[in-house]
Design a protein around this nucleic acid. Structure first.
Lengths: 256, 256
DNA sequence: GAGTGGTCTAGACCACCCA
DNA sequence: GGGTGGTCTAGACCACTCA
């Protein structure tokens, strides 16, 4: 099995062939992609455990060291979590332990925020130009638009507009007037099978529109912080365009 | 050499001793810290090359695999850069390739910024309360305060106040009225021997003070984006507290 | 062609979790 | 006690860089 054609990529070429066009791709990358594919397609569910290293090594026809290197990559991306003595788990999005620790809202004095989300509206609509640009959609595409506030101790601190591609998110079932107790990325995953892999945030200033002013209880034209986020799925496709407005909060990158 | 006391940590204990209080710390972590120490103390200068893996393995009395694991950690932190066939280099801060690719100013339309910095003032002063809190200084401590603007095509876009602990930065030699052609972290490193390892940014809104309004050419009380950064050295000690105000720009996290 | 890092393997031993 | 991941080693072969 030490010829360069393990079951990871090719069925089994003859040893003389100097390796096909893609055969030279490192085994651990092939293994990583295969693991990733099985996470994406749900073979291993979020919260579930992978087979053990020796088992995977046997299955893929590579050595344990190669499996470990593939896993380390996925652990670094925050997709897998290894627990000594227990096994390797597909990381679930959870309210407490989101993959997005690096950028978050905080109070002006640095205290972390524990907001509750309240859905103001949820409707399917034609995507506007910015939605289409952010989500890579065509001209007539439809999006599911959520408007919500996020409050702490009953005080609305953040006003959010979230645009999602209509098709994969039809099952989201966000009811206007209800509170969302779960972190929304948990819902994407549980109800729509969409796992957010990473996100890019752009932060700017804006002024309160009448609707935002009413929702946040501030005068119109109040200067606000506006955070625009594009979140992408494991496949690399953008799946969320989110705008968050806040008057009282700051936004922070974690130190390491 | 397969007993648990390589030259990395202990000189050479007798094999029977069940390992000292710290002896159980994994070898690759000990090796990593030793490499880090030599980077910090300047044994290997930024831009310079480390000895080869076999050489280091021999020096530290561990296997190449252990050295590699230590290096991978430092590569992940952005301190080392490996080049196939050439060697392993201590990453220098450079104008083009800063270690802080993850958060940066951009134009409103997303174009990257290429600003030139102009020093307005540079003076040693008593640290104010926020400086002391950010830099972990005591009551009477002194800081070097730089005021500067950053312009593109002659248009001032960012106003900055930078506070640095007076002692290690006495050699900075920033002359009021001059332009800083180098990325400032290059100067910290070259003139003061201070290497910035990472930073935490907090982003909020503010309004233009008279001084800022004049520097940026906007009316007083204009709403601004305010980015506060605390940068820490390789040792973990905070060495820079920076406030950046801008009216026209956005701030962005890189995707990945 | 000599030297460097990159990939891959095989196997030993340890530390942790759980039944 | 059996299984899991964590550390560590030794060595083979490949790919890249530079003289």
């Amino acid at each position: 099995m030490s010829s360069r054609s393990p079951s990871v990529a090719q069925p089994h070429n003859s040893p003389e062939v100097p390796a096909g066009p893609l055969a030279s791709r490192p085994l651990y990358l092939q293994a990583r992609d295969l693991l990733l594919r099985r996470i994406v397609d749900g073979t291993w569910k979020p919260g579930g455990y992978l087979p053990s290293e020796p088992q995977l090594a046997l299955d893929l026809g590579v050595s344990i060291g190669t499996i470990r290197k593939a896993m380390e990559d996925l652990v670094g991306q925050g997709l897998l979590e290894r627990q000594h003595g227990r096994g390797t788990q597909v990381v679930p999005h959870s309210s407490d332990r989101s993959r997005f620790r690096f950028l978050r809202f905080v109070h002006g004095d640095g205290r972390p925020l524990r907001p509750v989300a309240h859905v103001l509206a949820a409707a399917t609509a034609r995507a506007d130009a910015r939605d289409r640009a952010a989500l890579g959609l065509g001209a007539g595409a439809k999006v599911l638009v959520l408007l919500r506030t996020r409050s702490e101790d009953g005080v609305p601190l953040i006003y959010e507009r979230i645009a999602l591609p209509a098709e994969p998110f039809a099952a989201l079932n966000a009811e206007p007037g209800t509170d969302m107790l779960e972190e929304i990325y948990v819902l994407y995953q549980a109800r729509c099978g969409q796992t957010v892999a990473r996100a890019r945030d752009t932060i700017a200033t804006d002024r309160a529109s009448p609707a935002i002013a009413e929702a946040l209880g501030c005068p119109p034209e109040t200067p606000l912080l506006l955070v625009c986020r594009v979140a992408v799925a494991l496949t690399g496709a953008p799946i969320e365009y989110r705008q968050s407005w806040t008057a009282a909060l700051a936004y922070r990158s974690d130190l390491d």
